[in-house]
């Protein structure tokens, strides 16, 4: 094994800088909301350390607040993270030959930012070997995940200082929409979002909030179908 390519680790640190801006408010917000709903600081931290996936943590909070059954909470919040299987597929050609413990660590830190930055940079640098790719990857996740834990702790520890009477119940929906709406740029993405929202409202009569899972599946199919149609139209 060659020496750890430190300059490439630093490139990863630099690449992650713009993303750290977003991690801090969201991590802090998670900490604030988790303790406002009755979690201890330790429990909020456990959430951020064990799950380490912001959107699904907010999803779990929202569903707990609505009193959904445990199994539905776990399934729905996990469904928010289904995209990580796709990230795992995408990084396998680059990092699949790393040792088992390295892959165990890479998997733990596989988040939106490490996938997006990693996949883009690895494609641009065909000359990089495994050591360089791993160095870049860990450069990206060090500040992002470190700040995620730290921000959760700050929010959970000092959130009670916030004035009472803020519409905290609605901060979660607004944050969610703020996370997802920048992704709605193509017609297929917008169709998927519309099927998801409309479908869940139409299926709200289904027991245990299970309508959301059905609507989500329909929305994924709708997105894939529209994308396929548009490709055909462009090709033809």
């Amino acid at each position: 094994m060659s020496a750890f390519p430190r300059h490439i680790f630093r490139q990863g640190l630099m690449a992650s800088a713009p993303f750290t801006l977003m991690i801090v408010p969201f991590g802090a917000l998670f900490g604030v909301l988790a303790t406002a709903q009755g979690m201890t600081v330790t429990e909020a931290m456990a959430f951020s350390i064990v799950v380490i996936a912001g959107a699904s943590q907010f999803a779990a909070l929202q569903l707990m607040q609505e009193g959904a059954p445990i199994l539905i909470i776990i399934l729905t919040a996990t469904a928010v993270n289904l995209r990580m299987a796709m990230y795992s597929v995408a990084l396998t050609p680059h990092l699949g030959r790393a040792s088992l413990w390295q892959r165990i660590l890479v998997s733990y830190f596989l988040i939106d930012q490490s996938y997006v930055l990693g996949a883009a940079e690895f494609d641009r640098r065909p000359e990089w070997g495994l050591a360089e790719k791993l160095a870049f990857y860990f450069g990206v996740i060090t500040p992002i995940c470190g700040l995620w834990y730290l921000a959760t702790w700050v929010g959970a520890s000092f959130g009670r200082a916030l004035p009472a009477g803020w519409p905290l119940d609605f901060i979660v929906p607004v944050s969610f929409l703020a996370m997802v709406s920048p992704l709605l740029q193509t017609r297929a993405q917008r169709v998927a979002a519309a099927v998801s929202a409309g479908g869940t409202l139409l299926l709200w009569w289904m027991p245990y909030s299970s309508g959301l899972l059905v609507a989500a599946l329909a929305a994924m199919i709708a997105g894939a179908v529209v994308e396929t149609q548009e490709e055909r139209r462009h090709a033809g």
Partner: peptide
């Protein structure tokens, strides 16, 4: 499509 399939419904 999972982010836009799950979050708007949530």
């Amino acid at each position: 499509y999972t982010p836009m399939a799950v979050i708007p419904g949530l």
